[in-house]
Amino acid sequence: MAFAVALLSRTKQYTECPPLMEEDKYQDSRQKLKNILKPMEGAEETGLIIHEELCSGCGNCVVACPVNVANDPHGSGRGFGPTNEKVIFRVENGIVKAANIKECRRFGKDRILCRACIDPCPTEAIEFV
């Protein structure tokens, strides 16, 4: 059970379960588990997933994220591209990139269920799992 919890909280990957990966009789289970966990592939520790192919680089999330606003009030907060490295979202080559995820308001002990990057996205490119 401890392993399952670690899986879901993303501190462990299912590929780290040796019997599952090695033994043929687990092939079905391996596939099933892979499918269940599929939406979480590429997710950050907070569960953030960016569907890059859906992103138009509009910057709505860049300007709306409260962490971007707090850490870069005169750049992202005012609608410009970020002016420092302390932000979560920035647009590079036309597509949004996330960094400093630990600052996300959904993370840590005073977490809140922030949706300020999800709702403004015109194409549902941002998801939390």
């Binding site: 138009s56 680089g57 509009c58 410009f80 591209g81 970020p82 647009v91 590079e92 080559n93 036309g94």
Partner: peptide, 24 residues
């Protein structure tokens, strides 16, 4: 007017803050 373009050897290497259309 806030786009940052990285140029190397007279070629665009990276563009920041432009949307997909601007990147194209």
């Amino acid at each position: 007017e806030d786009i940052q373009v990285h140029i190397k050897d007279n070629k665009v290497e990276k563009v920041e803050h432009a949307c997909l259309k601007g990147k194209a």
